[in-house]
Design a protein around this nucleic acid. Structure first.
Length: 321
DNA sequence: GCCCTATGTTAAA
DNA sequence: TTAACCTAGGGCT
């Protein structure tokens, strides 16, 4: 699935193309027909993200909550105001980036016929957005939305597309102040170091940190030289703080770039003449989906195993127990 | 066509 | 800890 950086990009994109617009809301597939009817004709006030959760606030006092899960994706199209609006969600092949439409402007004649299983379609005067394959898609109240966000761990990307930028939500703003700045780092350290659970599992726990997924889990543990099996309780507060700072750093890059790149330039492959090769996609990761390949730092093979039913990639040499 | 995979979560056992 | 759920694409037969 799109990890947290993709959802923050989505919130920003909804804000850019739909905020203030009255929307026709439908469910071409039919599975969200009743929910769509409750939103149809309402105006979008703001879009915001917390971790992998996307919230769309409407002027009729309702909120559309979407979680993309493993397969979900949004696609967009429209007139010149939708220029740069990209498809964001599950990639259709490994290494695919979120795509940008940089082509010449085309006359906008309204949304196309729905293709495939479109759960939700939003249409304004200027363009449309289609949602396919989400794991969650429901209409809730603002209080319920705040409850969902409040249960999650701190979001390293808070501020990237925060409600403080996007709109006014007093409950959410209150929660933000509790999680602001160093407070969020401290909250992460507290939650990470509270349990004996392996740090590799804790990073995937959205109640410890909201927005990290399998790629950022593997890559940030590698970058910090941490064994995935180290119990949270045995991670020093100092190391937990450095881990948080690294997560903030690489996920911030992900929001900017629209793809996950965690390698430092000195660790990327070169051609036989020593010239740099393209960063994307083959030079983007240290360990994710590189099992059996030589570690970029030590040269020993990258390992793969299962942890809590998810693939875990790591370097046994650089991340010793 | 069929089988597998994927940046995920939840509920049941 | 396992199964179920959601969708589309790629590799295979």
């Amino acid at each position: 699935m799109p990890e947290g950086h993709s959802v923050h990009r989505l919130a920003r994109q909804f804000q850019d193309v739909f905020a203030g617009a009255r929307l026709a809301v439908s469910s071409p597939q039919g599975r969200f027909a009743s929910g769509a009817a409750r939103l149809d004709g309402a105006t979008l006030l703001a879009a915001r993200a917390h971790g992998k959760q996307l919230f769309l606030d409407f002027d009729n006092g309702l909120v559309l909550r979407v979680h993309l899960g493993l397969y979900g994706a949004w696609s967009f199209g429209g007139d010149e105001t939708f220029r740069g609006a990209s498809s964001i969600g599950a990639p259709r092949r490994v290494g695919e980036r979120e795509t940008y439409d940089d082509g010449a402007p085309v006359a906008y004649d309204g949304p196309p016929e729905p293709v495939g299983q479109v759960r939700v379609r939003l249409v304004s005067d200027h363009g449309w957005a289609d949602l396919r394959g989400p794991t969650a898609c429901e209409v809730i109240t603002p209080a319920e939305a705040s409850a969902v966000a409040g249960k999650l761990g701190p979001d390293p990307l808070q501020g990237e597309s925060s409600p403080l930028q996007n709109g006014v939500d007093a409950l959410q703003a209150g929660a933000d102040s509790l999680h602001a700045g160093a407070g969020r780092a401290a909250e992460f350290v507290r939650r990470l170091t509270a349990k004996r659970t392996a740090v590799g599992q804790l990073l995937m726990d959205q109640n410890v940190v909201a927005g990290v997924g399998n790629i950022y889990r593997a890559e940030t543990l590698f970058r910090r030289g941490l064994s995935p099996w180290l119990p949270g309780k045995q991670v020093s507060p100092e190391e937990a703080g450095l881990l948080w700072a690294d997560i903030v750093d690489v996920m911030g890059d992900g929001v900017r770039d629209g793809k996950i790149i965690t390698t430092r330039p000195e660790h990327r492959d070169t051609d036989p003449a020593g010239r740099l090769l393209p960063v994307w996609p083959d030079n983007a990761y240290y360990v994710y989906q590189r099992q059996g390949m030589a570690c970029r730092v030590c040269g020993n093979p990258v390992a793969l195993t299962d942890m809590a039913a998810r693939k875990l990639y790591w370097c046994p040499t650089c991340q010793p127990a």
